[in-house]
Amino acid sequence: MELRLIDPNGYTVPDTTQTVTDDTADKVREHLLTEIAPQHAAQWADFGYDPRNYRVA
């Protein structure tokens, strides 16, 4: 299965697509939302990006 972080505008955040197993999916999902989303949102804060508006697909 593949997981990717999706920004508030519906685009995949670069370099966040990861192939995972059922055993690692929850851990990767948590990492993307708690570590990567805040970093990416901080870079785009001037445009109103908020890490709470990201999702993993």
Rank of each mutant, 00 (worst) to 15 (best):
R52W: 08
T16Y: 02
P14S: 10
R55M: 08
R29G: 01
T34D: 11
N9P: 00
Y11K: 15
N9S: 07
V56C: 05
D23Y: 11
W44I: 05
P14Y: 07
D15E: 14
A37M: 02
R52Q: 15
Q18G: 03
Q43P: 00
D15V: 06
F47R: 13
V28A: 05
R29T: 13
E2A: 07
G10D: 10
L32P: 00
L5D: 01
D22C: 04
T16A: 07
D50C: 06
Q18I: 09
E30F: 00
D26L: 12
Y54F: 15
Y49G: 03
L33I: 07
Q39G: 11
W44R: 12
W44K: 14
D22N: 12
V56G: 02
A41Y: 02
Y11I: 09
Q18L: 12
N53M: 10
P38W: 01
T21C: 05
T19M: 13
I36P: 00
L32A: 03
Y54N: 03
L32V: 06
I6N: 03
D22S: 14
T19V: 14
Y54Q: 03
T16V: 05
R55G: 02
P8D: 07
L3K: 06
R4M: 15
D15K: 11
E30A: 12
D50L: 07
P14T: 09
V56K: 02
A41W: 01
G48R: 08
D26Q: 12
P51E: 01
Y54V: 03
W44P: 00
E2L: 09
P51N: 05
D23G: 07
K27L: 14
L32S: 01
E2S: 08
N53C: 06
R52T: 14
R52H: 15
P8H: 04
G10L: 05
P14E: 07
I36H: 03
D26E: 15
Q18S: 08
L32F: 05
M1A: 13
K27H: 12
V28D: 02
H31K: 13
K27N: 14
A45L: 07
Y49I: 04
A42R: 13
N9D: 11
T34Q: 12
Q39F: 13
Y11P: 00
A41F: 00
